[in-house]
Design a protein around this nucleic acid. Structure first.
Lengths: 317, 317
DNA sequence: TTGTGGTATGGGCAAATACTCACACAACGG
DNA sequence: CCGTTGTGTGAGTATTTGCCCATACCACAA
């Protein structure tokens, strides 16, 4: 006999046992007594009810939908980790919710006893996340910046958050005292070969986990708004097919880094290897969608924190 | 609301834990690890999710015996609708199972696109049912109370559930700001002629469907326990042949309303006409048997939700 | 009758889960 | 300011559950 073929009365009994268990809240012992069978049989009845799909559980909470979407994201894009937070339909904030979730995820990593190397990108979302981070003492960990922290005018780049996080978690921090984008490829090489910088770059390659934002390349591209690139450079990136930027480096819609242009001068560390590190992007909203899609296609990341609406669009596409 | 009042984020966490447990099939240990909390807390979260009613279990199996009994009930007593849930032999609860079924039946009605008028009685069973009701937005419907909601001491009658249900389903609600039993027939007339009350009474007569409980008139009669009638009044009702009470109005064993006594002063609306409305009683257990029999004999109802044991006794008698 | 293959049963045990308790901490009220 | 009260937490412990396995049972064929 190929099919399991369960008889009707058997399923009836299973349903009854399942009812007594799940609805009436009996223990298997009690069910056994009431149905006049052994506890083991009662257990079998209950598990039969489950395996035959008689028992359906539903969670009456918006969160349930989010978890479901997260699971789908992981499946579909081969992510190791995904988190979807509820969308607040009214809000236009690009950080609401995801920042909290990112802070929570960071905390989970930081709670580890064994030392980790935490790579940190840049951006508004990340800054918001770190502001939400609860202070926690983790002297065992190291936190390393993936981007330079010097703005074009020589001031500290505002959305470079390495100091903020280091302060919050009392870990040793490794900032990258460089401009985000050097003036020429040669300057970048020169800077990268400095004794102060090299160990930071090496450390960033060893990151256990990295949190990065995804920047769009629209008219309001953070790289442009914050003055790291000129309007002409922004247009050139778009012309070349660029749709997003991670730690300053521009990618096309397939997540392939653009050749030339500002990419030749980006002084940031490379995104850590997805084989050895968790690279978690924090991004939501329609403006970031092409960027997220690119990052997923190009396997630039293996973790994503986003919101419901964004997740739905990603899965629909 | 005198409820414990659990904050949103706490419920969110509970939902998350519940999802991981029931949907994703994690053990509590795994949940604890994933959420970065202790196993005990994970357990608490899961049980919170259950106790807050976030987790709904449904059994997708018509237990043959119950269906059979339901069919027989419909045939024998000319009901339009009957539902029989399994009996838990050991339990003394008067709501277990039937409340779930009632909630499911309500949901079925509420899902209707076309606006309905939902009449709601009172009582423990009904309250339990409404607590199990999943929140569902139905602004198209109206829900009207069939009984007054003022207790003898002036407080809100505890088992009047119009507000609970209105809150759950986001429908316009029509409570009846009256005492359940007026001090005299004259007072009742006066109250009923009020401009605030009349529309409610008229609406209740137009109900599409009404859910009512059946109260017994034993020493533990809810009317008496909750202080709506005195012991003397209770005894008088029994003396006069009363066996049950629906929306406060007492009936004899044939389902004929008693003349005089407290019935002259009951301020409740009449049970909607069985010709135009579904009137569904929710009741089980030996104590309610005479009441259910009376309601069936007097054709006070055309729908019944009860349990196996009660159904069997009804059919045997 | 006996053997054989398949299936159901219950004992036993480790894992998982629920519960109780004591304590920490914050909010509240004198 | 200090007790009081309520709430949340972790530790420890009892209960419950899931699962393996030896055994009993049954139908059927030799």
């Amino acid at each position: 006999m190929s099919k399991p073929e369960v008889t009707t009365t058997r399923l009836d009994d299973a349903a009854r046992a399942g009812w007594l268990y799940y609805v009436a809240g009996n223990t298997q012992d009690e069910i056994a007594a009431k149905l006049g069978i052994s506890r083991q049989s009662a257990q079998r009845m209950v598990s039969l009810a489950v395996s035959e799909g008689l028992v359906k559980v539903r969670l009456d909470h918006p969160i349930a939908r989010c978890l479901d979407l997260a699971e789908q994201l992981k499946q579909r894009f081969g992510l190791k980790m995904a988190e979807v937070v509820p969308t607040d339909p009214g809000s236009t904030s690009t950080t609401l919710g995801v920042a909290d979730a990112a802070a929570a995820e960071m905390t989970r990593w930081l709670k580890s006893e064994t030392p980790i190397v935490l790579g940190i990108g840049t951006g508004r979302t990340l800054k918001a996340a770190i502001e939400l981070l609860s202070p926690i003492e983790c002297p065992q960990h190291k936190v390393v910046s993936l981007t330079g922290n010097i703005a074009p005018d020589g001031s500290a780049a505002f959305y470079n958050v390495i100091f903020n996080i280091a302060d919050k978690i009392k870990a040793r921090s490794f900032p990258m005292p460089l401009p985000v984008i050097a003036s020429s490829p040669e300057e970048r090489e020169l800077l990268h070969s400095q004794a102060m910088i090299r160990p930071v770059l090496e450390l960033s390659a060893q990151a256990t986990v990295a949190f990065v934002g995804i920047g769009d390349l629209s008219e309001e591209a953070p790289l442009f708004i914050d003055g790291f690139i000129s309007r002409e450079e922004l247009l050139a990136l778009r012309q070349a097919g660029g749709v997003c930027e991670i730690v300053g480096r521009a990618f096309d819609r397939n997540g392939v880094p653009l050749k030339g242009l500002t990419n030749d001068r980006v002084a940031s560390a490379h995104i850590p290897s997805r084989d050895t590190a968790m690279v978690i992007a924090i991004a939501k909203g329609p403006k970031k969608l092409p960027g997220i899609e690119a990052a997923l296609k190009g396997s630039l990341i293996n973790g994503l924190i986003t919101d419901e609406a964004t997740a739905e669009t990603l899965l629909a596409g």
